[in-house]
Amino acid sequence: MDDFAEFYLSGKDAVFRAVLAAGGDRAGAEDAVAEAYARAYARWATVREHPNPLAWVLRVALNVRRSVWRRLRREVLGDPPEQPAAGREPDGGLRRELAALPRRQREVVALRLLADLSVAETAELLGITEGTVNTHLHRAVQALRHRLHPTRLTGLKSTTEVA
């Protein structure tokens, strides 16, 4: 197995879950992640030397999703799916409530808690400060605590995390 295949197989599911949690529909997430890995493959000689190739792929995948939203906004003359999946997502409560969060909060939750990136890596990937990452995570946790059924996340409280 070559090193791209190894890189792909070891990270594709984690990247897919993070992009899926960050927002949008399943097909769109699959397409974005596949596109991101295709771009990584097309310039693998460069990407493999990147300090964090997985973060590179995540960034590309999220950007591909945003590009789709921007294109939809122009074509449909409506708002992008800022709160896209609420009401459409057939899965459980956590998934539905996560999808109802603002985009930035979803992305921070996805990158920090699903992709397991550090605060610093998340900040760099999203182009925001570390303090803002913590703020978004804090707000996301607060919102989820209020929205989810009390018996499922009773007493959920935020903590400040450091990379």
Binding site: D13, R17, D91, L98, L113, L153, G155, S158, T159
Partner: peptide, 17 residues
């Protein structure tokens, strides 16, 4: 519960994907 609890729940939720 803490952020770690939420991390666990989200990991369980999206694990099958």
């Amino acid at each position: 519960m803490t952020i770690d609890d939420l991390r666990t729940r989200i990991a369980e939720e999206y694990g099958p994907d």
